[in-house]
């Protein structure tokens, strides 16, 4: 009897601990949609909302239908006179077209060519199933099994978690029912960006994204990173986890601002070199002095990233420059 009681207490304690650990996003919360968040928080966060509407995040997926004509006209980049498929087949525009744009048919299959915006040309692309490869990161609240999402584009709930519990919570529980990355352990907050800024596959290999992960959760339970070689593309978190920066808690939001419009490249809080020197100024005065000591001649417009983040990699490798 006594042993059973002890066991009971132990189970209770573990349950409470686990529940507490998962409290960041309570179970059972459902996605409510970005507009629902905006409905209440618009007045205070007007600037965020206004810059969000125009951002690549908000327009990562655009539904092609009669209600959405204005947006489609604004964002459709491809030249369909030369396309290997008909414009009428396009049911979704994938990405706002900063670099490139792909298109999905009504069954959420990728149409066989994507448009390179700068080069103004079509290149072939495998006709994969977007529900397994793409849509988790181009929409919010996507469930691969149901082939459904809540909001097209990356919205508030991608990082702050599904909002229904927050909406129905009483006033004093509002803050406990929403994920607040700014208050989390830096590594946990980085994993939130890592949902999409990683290269690899889900643990079961079925999808290219961590289906089931929620902000604040254990990322490695859902995702396995690939070995990345070559130029960077959506590999930022895969790179970052290997770095000293990550170990010491210097993560995505340390340098990048997830909200608003900073006006700096890649939504950095400050220009590149200024960002790096904020921490490294003890050893490095400026780029010319630093380059001289390493016997290299950087281009006139060089930033720290020119040598230490070549091709957009986020390894911050000290030896990269030496090798070149």
């Amino acid at each position: 009897m006594k042993r059973a009681l002890t066991l009971g207490w132990a189970v209770a304690a573990v349950t409470i601990a686990v529940a507490a650990l998962h409290a960041a996003v309570p179970d059972g919360a459902k996605y409510s949609g970005t507009r629902m968040c905006v409905a209440c928080h618009r007045a205070k966060h007007k600037d965020i909302v206004n810059s969000y509407i125009k951002s690549p995040m908000a327009n990562a997926l655009i539904e092609v239908n009669d209600d959405n004509e204005e947006k489609v006209t604004q964002y459709l980049k491809g030249d369909f006179k030369t396309a290997p498929f008909k414009q009428d087949d396009v049911a979704f525009i994938l990405a706002s077209g900063v670099h490139q744009q792909a298109y999905l048919d009504k069954d959420m299959k990728v149409l066989p060519a994507k448009w390179l915006v700068a080069d103004k040309k079509w290149v072939e692309t495998p006709a994969v199933d977007a529900t397994k490869e793409c849509l988790y990161c181009h929409s919010t609240g996507f469930v691969a099994a149901d082939k459904k999402y809540k909001t097209a584009g990356v919205g508030c709930e991608m990082c702050h978690g599904p909002g229904s519990a927050h909406i129905s919570a009483p006033a004093d529980k509002k803050l406990d029912t929403v994920a607040r990355p700014g208050e989390m352990d830096p590594k946990a907050s980085a994993a939130i960006c890592g949902q999409c800024h990683s290269r690899g596959r889900s643990v079961d290999g079925a999808t290219a994204f961590p289906q089931g992960f929620l902000p604040g959760g254990d990322f490695n339970k859902f995702f396995k990173h690939d070995e990345v070689k070559g130029p960077g593309l959506n590999q930022q978190f895969t790179d970052l986890v290997k770095t000293k920066h990550y170990e010491k808690g210097v993560v995505c939001a340390t340098c990048h601002d997830p909200h608003g419009e900073t006006g700096n490249i890649a939504q950095l809080r400050k220009p590149i070199t200024e960002t790096c020197l904020d921490c490294h100024k003890a050893k490095i005065v400026d780029i010319p002095t630093h380059a001289k000591s390493k016997n290299v001649t950087p281009p006139a417009d060089a930033t720290c990233a020119t040598c230490h983040m070549p091709e957009g990699r986020h390894l911050f490798d000290k030896t990269v420059a030496d090798k070149k």
Binding site: S32, R35, M36, A39, S164, I167, S168
Partner: peptide, 16 residues
Amino acid sequence: QFKVDGMHADAGDARV
């Protein structure tokens, strides 16, 4: 009190 509408609808506008 606040009233929230459209939270669980798949389409349609959010309303408070």
